[in-house]
């Protein structure tokens, strides 16, 4: 029999689905980035000119925007991962919602700082 299932659904309250959704999306994004990163490093094998061309491309505003998304992904995934590890061990269960919003807030603030430094 068919099942109706979905893990991607936006609602702020309760925030559990949102936390799960962002964590999963950033996780998938980071795995994709890992392979992209290895592919980019491969350009080093093509000589210094190829690498310089690549670095020139990396300075474009679109790539900087992607860098900001990457930075947010790393920060949120790491911080929320810490939250999940703690509540998974029964620590901070009472504050788990605040820990999520805190992780999101810190990730957003540090991403803004990162953008400011990059620009």
């Amino acid at each position: 029999m068919k099942r109706r299932s979905r893990w991607f659904e936006f609602h702020l309250h309760p925030a559990g689905m949102l936390a799960f959704m962002i964590h999963r999306l950033t996780g998938i994004g980071l795995v994709v980035y890992l392979y992209l990163h290895l592919w980019i490093l491969n350009t080093l094998r093509q000589g210094s000119q190829a690498w310089d061309t690549f670095l020139q491309m990396m300075r474009s505003p679109m790539v900087l925007l992607l860098d900001a998304v990457l930075l947010f992904g790393i920060l949120f995934h790491g911080l929320n991962g810490l939250r999940l590890s703690l509540v998974g061990l029964g620590i901070g269960l009472r504050w788990q919602k605040w820990l999520f919003w805190g992780s999101l807030g810190v990730a957003v603030c540090l991403t803004i700082c990162g953008i400011w430094i990059m620009v």
Partner: peptide, 23 residues
């Protein structure tokens, strides 16, 4: 379980499955 706590939020009987799972 990824500790989304949605189960405890929707429970109409006041049961707190998420807390029990983590315990």
């Amino acid at each position: 379980c990824h500790a989304a706590f949605e189960c405890s939020e929707v429970c109409p009987a006041g049961v707190d499955p998420a807390r029990e799972i983590l315990a």
